[in-house]
Amino acid sequence: MSAVAGDGTATARIGISIAPFAPLLACLGLLAAWQIGALLLGTDSIPTALDALRAVPDILGDRSGLANILDSIRRMAIGLASAVVVSIPLGLAMGRVPAVASFFNPILMVTYPVPKAALMPVIMLWLGVGDLSKTLVIFLAVTLPIIYHSFEGAKAVEEKMIWSGAAMGMSRLQIMARIVLPAALPEILAGCRTGLVLALITMVTSEMIARKSGAGNILFNALDMGQYDTVFAMIIIIGALGIIFDAAFDRLRRALVAWSDTRQDIPLSFS
């Protein structure tokens, strides 16, 4: 038993000492694996990591390239924000009121698996080919995880807390806002994090079939033309955006749920 404990602390100490460099090391490892893999394969469609990295400044240095990426981020922000506003109340209501869950569950499972790309003709008919249809696609992708995580979070709220709220004379709406929402917040934020990932992905894929501007515009253009350096450079840029947004989100999350967890960052030390 003591041997196990000793192991644990040793791991922990190493963990701490490399912790600040771990992200960097992981990224370097990834790039190295990519470089070796690409060299071994030797096909044009998979450039080496160095070739792709070299193409990054070309995109970011070009004013239109930067404008394109900002266009995508703008759509993503709007889609993400509206998804958060709509799906948290819906998810919480589904989690607390069984009838609401019964009402929405089948319809969500029927509509969500339909690939939006296949609905393009009808979407184009009503929403055109501009920002609106793309933002809708992002919105739909983001609502999926947030609704289900809010649902799960609300369901797991302890009945005792609801009862005490009711005993204090709170209305149902007050109970939702002041008891269920805070209690479910960590789970909701876990949903938002997945939502953020999906937002970044759909921000690009929504520009696959019809496009005017955006990160996907650059990426799919390059893909169509077989300019794979640019394709993978764009992938690197999107990966970097992922890190930035995720770090920002993590700060926000910590600020919001500081009361609930210090344990989030204490891995179970028995390995």
Binding site: P23, A26, C27, L219, G239, G242, D246
Partner: peptide, 11 residues
């Protein structure tokens, strides 16, 4: 953790 951060949002 860092790998997920980089790879998850890749389209």
């Amino acid at each position: 953790r860092p790998l997920v951060r980089v790879l998850a949002p890749v389209p």
